[in-house]
Amino acid sequence: MWPWGHAAVGYLLCTLWLRARYGHRPTAGVVLPLAVGTQFPDLVDKPLGWTLGVLPSGRAGAHSLLIALPLLVVLWWHLDSRHGRTAVAGFALGYLSHLAGDGIYAVFDGEVLYLGYLLWPVTPLPPYEESAGILAHFAAAEVTPHLLLEVGLFVVATALWLVDGAPGLRVLGQWCMRQANAAASTLAGR
Score class of each variant (00 low, 15 high):
residue 1 M to G: 01
residue 3 P to I: 10
residue 7 A to C: 06
residue 10 G to S: 12
residue 14 C to S: 12
residue 15 T to D: 13
residue 15 T to S: 13
residue 16 L to K: 12
residue 21 R to G: 04
residue 23 G to H: 10
residue 25 R to I: 05
residue 28 A to D: 00
residue 29 G to T: 05
residue 33 P to N: 09
residue 33 P to K: 02
residue 35 A to Q: 11
residue 35 A to L: 13
residue 35 A to S: 15
residue 37 G to A: 04
residue 37 G to M: 00
residue 38 T to G: 06
residue 42 D to H: 09
residue 42 D to W: 12
residue 43 L to R: 07
residue 43 L to V: 12
residue 46 K to C: 11
residue 47 P to C: 03
residue 49 G to C: 08
residue 52 L to N: 00
residue 53 G to T: 11
residue 54 V to T: 14
residue 55 L to E: 02
residue 55 L to V: 05
residue 57 S to L: 05
residue 58 G to C: 10
residue 59 R to V: 11
residue 60 A to T: 13
residue 63 H to Y: 07
residue 66 L to T: 09
residue 69 L to I: 15
residue 70 P to W: 10
residue 72 L to V: 10
residue 74 V to M: 08
residue 76 W to V: 07
residue 77 W to K: 12
residue 80 D to R: 14
residue 80 D to W: 04
residue 84 G to N: 02
residue 88 V to S: 01
residue 90 G to K: 00
residue 91 F to V: 00
residue 94 G to H: 06
residue 100 A to L: 15
residue 102 D to G: 02
residue 104 I to S: 09
residue 106 A to M: 00
residue 110 G to L: 09
residue 114 Y to S: 08
residue 114 Y to G: 06
residue 114 Y to Q: 09
residue 115 L to H: 05
residue 117 Y to I: 07
residue 118 L to T: 02
residue 118 L to S: 11
residue 124 P to K: 04
residue 130 E to W: 07
residue 135 L to I: 08
residue 135 L to S: 01
residue 137 H to I: 03
residue 137 H to E: 15
residue 138 F to D: 08
residue 141 A to R: 14
residue 145 P to A: 01
residue 150 E to T: 00
residue 150 E to W: 03
residue 150 E to S: 02
residue 151 V to W: 07
residue 153 L to M: 15
residue 156 V to K: 14
residue 157 A to T: 08
residue 158 T to V: 11
residue 159 A to P: 04
residue 161 W to H: 04
residue 164 D to S: 10
residue 164 D to L: 12
residue 165 G to W: 09
residue 165 G to I: 13
residue 165 G to L: 11
residue 166 A to W: 02
residue 168 G to F: 01
residue 170 R to D: 10
residue 172 L to Q: 06
residue 174 Q to M: 11
residue 175 W to A: 15
residue 176 C to A: 15
residue 180 A to K: 10
residue 180 A to D: 03
residue 181 N to Y: 09
residue 183 A to C: 08
residue 184 A to R: 09
residue 185 S to W: 04
residue 186 T to A: 15
residue 188 A to T: 04
residue 189 G to H: 14
residue 189 G to F: 14
residue 189 G to L: 14
